[in-house]
Write a protein that binds this DNA or RNA. Structure first.
Lengths: 310, 310
DNA sequence: CTCGATAACAAGGTTTTTCCTATATGACGA
DNA sequence: TCGTCATATAGGAAAAACCTTGTTATCGAG
């Protein structure tokens, strides 16, 4: 039994003759005739009674008709199901983001995406970068945005953005010249994302530099969020280091900031399974993330030196 | 999209690899691979992500899987629907019978048939022979048992039985020798099946004979059923003519009966559309009817001359 | 009752599809 | 690094689908 035969059968029922069905399907009568014969042979019973003029359904044919129609309807539904995914009118996208990005971006991203593709369900999870990488690897998530470095085995990786890390201090004097790692070591340091400890990419880079310069960094306070770190810096408890984009946000008003002498960057990257092609939904979402990141950069450009007005 | 491709797809999902699916279907891996590729091409999106080892469903594949399964399930249901009809496990049989037969046989026939094929619905209608013929012609009924003659245009006709018509009288003297049509004309005549009038096959035969013999038959009473006719004959209101098989029934006790000098028969015949093949159910039912008719004949053989004991 | 139209059916040939074998390629694990 | 297992690819054989041509049967009209 083939879908084709079912199509021919239903067309024949509708037209009452093989030739009529053949015309409607742009085929010849013997083709239809032959396929119906085969179908009847396989079913072991005649579906039509052959009259000189036209055809009549047999009892078996009457029973078969609605069943055949249902099969064809389901075929269409199957086609539609994948078309939804293909045309971004359905399905679910699972996407992971590292903590900071998820905190600041998730609302905007979800809004943008749902506005454009209201029928695609979205599952956006905030984890740390290596957790995101793991879940993408085992297909719990389809793709993600992380901060390098991560173990990229089995992953496709594409750098999305370099986010400069700047030093923030209450004392403008401490930032009169680009900050060196040695200068940083001279003052109390406040760091955030305490829970990740040495796995935090920013810490890894800082410790790396300190080691090479032969100095020791002493974080006096480690807190959870950027806001908290900046808040503590405002009270003069120490300096802190934050992504440049975070400067333009609330909580940094009246603070001073400066690049490192040797600029320090967080590298954002998109990851996906290296063997699986990205779904259209994932591609569309990545594009939206990129647009948002670009807007962040632009906003950050206007904020330089001291964020008085923000 | 073909049913075959859906089968291959589901087998691949189940086994997690083309090669595994191929083994389970007794095919080779390139065949499966090729069909899946074609399916994906037609759907316009990949269903599997090809990993070095094994395959993973894409989002589209996940959506497609249940839809494909439903199609295959419905294909099976379609197959089962016609199999029911073929194997006499379903469907409906419409069968027509002429009045007398329906009155005497319907209960037994329905019982026999339902006992053997409890899943086939039965629609047994009692009409006169020409009405049955008409409804078989226009496919309202699939087949029927009628008394000849009928207009058999467009019908297949098979004689089922010759049923002798015998004269029944209260006076044994009237039946001492085989009855001639002339002798019949000498006495009051009671006929049944009044409503059909001259269309009744028995009347047609009798009138035909009378005409050839140059005598006139005068039915003094016409009633509806055989029982009524025999009842009136018992009261001495006249002679009547009934199928031999009816003699052995209640209501004919103590009456005398005799064949015609030139034996008179009702011819029972099965009819069906000449263009439509009989459904298995109809064939089975015809067989059951034949068996019942045979048993009637046997019973009638023991009743001869006078039905004292019946 | 013959004639023409229509449609099923049959036969033969061509194109397309399906499936195979053989081989290349790529990933994983010892 | 090599062997194993998986998919991809190429080429050819078998099968299926379709077409063309021609025959037969039925129905309706003249």
């Amino acid at each position: 039994m083939t879908i084709q035969q079912l199509t021919y059968f239903l067309a024949t029922v509708e037209h009452g003759s093989f030739s009529g069905a053949a015309r409607s399907l742009f085929l010849t009568q013997p083709s239809i005739s032959e396929q119906i014969r085969q179908l009847e042979g396989e079913l072991g019973i005649a579906l039509f009674a052959r009259a000189g003029r036209g055809l009549v359904l047999t009892e078996a044919g009457r029973k078969f008709r609605p069943a055949a129609a249902r099969v064809l309807a389901d075929v269409e539904r199957a086609r539609a199901a994948v078309a939804e995914v293909r045309d971004l009118r359905g399905g679910t996208l699972g996407f992971g983001m590292f903590g900071t990005a998820s905190a600041y971006l998730i609302a905007d991203l979800a809004t943008d995406f749902r506005k454009k593709y209201p029928d695609v369900r979205l599952r956006l999870v905030g984890l740390n970068s290596s957790e995101v990488a793991d879940q993408v690897r085992n297909a719990t998530l389809e793709a993600g945005l992380i901060v390098l470095p991560v173990d990229d085995a089995g992953l496709d990786l594409r750098v999305a953005r370099l986010e400069e890390l700047v030093v923030v201090s209450r004392e403008a004097s401490r930032l009169s010249t680009p900050v060196t790692i040695e200068a940083l070591a001279d003052a109390p340091l406040i760091l955030y994302d305490a829970q990740y400890g040495a796995n935090d990419p920013m810490r890894r880079q800082l410790l790396d530099r300190a080691q090479r310069a032969g100095v020791t960094l002493r974080p006096v306070i480690e807190v959870e969020g950027i806001e908290a770190a900046v808040g503590l810096a405002r009270r003069g408890l120490g300096d802190t280091i934050v992504p440049r984009a975070a400067i333009s946000r609330q909580g940094a008003r009246g603070m001073h900031f400066s690049s490192f002498a040797e600029p320090l960057f967080d590298t954002f990257a998109f990851i996906a399974r290296s063997d699986a092609p990205l779904s259209p939904a994932a591609r569309a979402f990545v594009e939206i993330v990129e647009r948002r990141l670009d807007r962040l950069s632009e906003a950050a450009l206007y904020a330089a030196g001291t964020s008085e007005t923000d």
